[in-house]
């Protein structure tokens, strides 16, 4: 078994102040690893969906799930298996592009990656890309030769494939 597997945990929580703190506090206090966390409204009014990416072995994952479930404001928790999960992240990259050549190369790469240019200034190009975190890494790698001024990433959010819901 993979000792330090990356897990995608999806949690349905009450959409009210303090819930994020309860969840984040739980991770810190119990020494659980937290790579990224995203929160937003869900299909149910009053409920938000949190997607947490965490690393750990099966035992740790079991504790994370059980401890999350103990929180009164958490309604449901599910470890999303990679095979049945769509995982997407949004990333904005501000690239240093003073030369015409740099500019056109960055635009080319962005197109290949199905990204979009969302802002232009005399010295920079800002591109938007969505996708699997690995794909985002790849684009970042490519454009880093020009000099990256800033990166903003949302962290992945995820949902199960097919008709199944959590």
């Amino acid at each position: 078994m993979d000792e330090n597997k990356t897990h995608v945990i999806s949690a349905l929580v009450l959409h009210k102040p303090g819930v994020l703190q309860r969840v984040a506090g739980l991770f810190t206090r119990r020494g659980f690893n937290i790579e990224t966390i995203t929160v937003g409204p869900s299909e149910n009014e009053g409920l938000a969906r949190m997607t947490i990416i965490s690393k750990g072995d099966e035992k740790v994952l079991e504790q994370i799930t059980k401890q999350l479930n103990k929180l009164i404001d958490v309604i449901k928790v599910r470890d999303l298996e990679p095979g049945i999960t769509v995982k997407r992240e949004l990333c904005l990259i501000k690239v240093h592009t003073v030369t015409e050549k740099a500019r056109s190369e960055v635009i080319q790469y962005t197109n290949i990656f199905r990204g979009r240019v969302v802002d232009v200034s005399p010295e920079t190009l800002t591109v938007e890309i969505t996708g699997d975190p690995e794909k985002i890494e790849a684009l970042i790698d490519l454009v880093s030769v020009f000099g990256i001024k800033e990166i903003a990433r949302t962290g992945p959010t995820a949902i199960t494939r097919g008709t199944k819901t959590i």
Partner: peptide
Amino acid sequence: VDPAEIGK
């Protein structure tokens, strides 16, 4: 009664 205690 607390599932989190089991296997902790």
